[in-house]
Design a binder for these strands. Structure first.
Length: 235
DNA sequence: GAGGAGATCGTCT
DNA sequence: GACGATCTCCTCT
């Protein structure tokens, strides 16, 4: 994969790249994984409450983690924009299974998008994870994205690491072959979601983006002011 | 900085 | 054969 060149930056700028509040592996491993009951609710509630939670990837002996700053709810059979709307297929079968599992699909010939199943089994609701704010493993994420090292990554470009569902999945090495159907409530898995007690100050609800059906529904949730939120000017 | 076009391939009909 | 819950690059202002 060719290296994508980002703007150079100086040392003073680099220190500010330690985005949000960087966490240690010890802190991440102490954070309890979200329980099945958390996901066994409607997708809108889960989407709103997932903001601020930690998405953690174990990659060999390494941990990568980011705080969820943007997501979207999809309501299954009730939602024309949802993959489950047209019924069960081989691709979306995970959506019809138990809550708290990863639904990963391939899109536009290049990218993977990562969802968490929710609602009681059979209802096929899910939450699309759209962006995280890196809290551990920043350099590994930059490498996974094919960007230059953090010593050369500009502050104005740092959001390119994990802002957007395709970028976020690539940064954490999430693929359909590796992660589709994985239980995200289980720390013994190599991908899970945990809570460390952080609560976002302000959450904004907006219409979902990148879809052509049910575009008016305000089921996209973002942490207000967070620089890793995708879209134009993070809106 | 903003907007548009093209790339790319799995999935579904 | 058509479409798509995206991203990057290029052009214009």
């Amino acid at each position: 994969m060719p290296t994508r060149h980002l703007k150079a930056k100086d040392e003073s700028e680099r220190s500010s790249l330690e985005v949000g509040t960087p966490l240690t592996a010890r802190v991440l491993l102490a954070a309890p994984p979200l329980r099945r009951e958390f996901f066994n609710r409607d997708a809108v509630t889960v989407g709103r409450e997932l903001l601020g939670k930690l998405l953690i990837r174990r990659d060999g002996r390494r941990l990568l983690a980011g705080r969820i700053v943007e997501d979207e709810a999809y309501l299954g059979a009730l939602d024309p924009a949802a993959h489950a709307y047209s019924g069960r297929t081989l691709r979306n079968a995970v959506l019809f299974g138990p809550a708290g599992h990863a639904y990963v699909y391939f899109i536009y010939g290049n990218y993977y998008c990562t969802n968490v199943t929710c609602m009681p089994e059979g209802d096929a609701g899910c939450v699309l994870l759209r962006a995280i704010e890196p809290v551990l493993g920043l350099d590994a994420m930059i490498q996974a994205r094919g960007l230059e090292s953090s010593s050369q990554t500009g502050i104005s470009q740092i959001r390119l690491i994990s802002s957007g569902p395709g970028r976020m999945s690539e940064a954490l090495g999430i693929t359909r072959a590796r992660d589709n159907g994985k239980d995200l409530t289980e720390r013994r898995s190599d991908l899970w979601i945990a809570a460390d007690g952080y609560r976002p100050e302000r959450v904004i609800e907006t219409p979902r983006i990148g879809i052509t059906k049910a575009v008016q529904e305000p089921w996209r949730f973002v942490i207000a002011g967070n620089r890793f939120v995708s879209g134009k000017r993070g809106s």
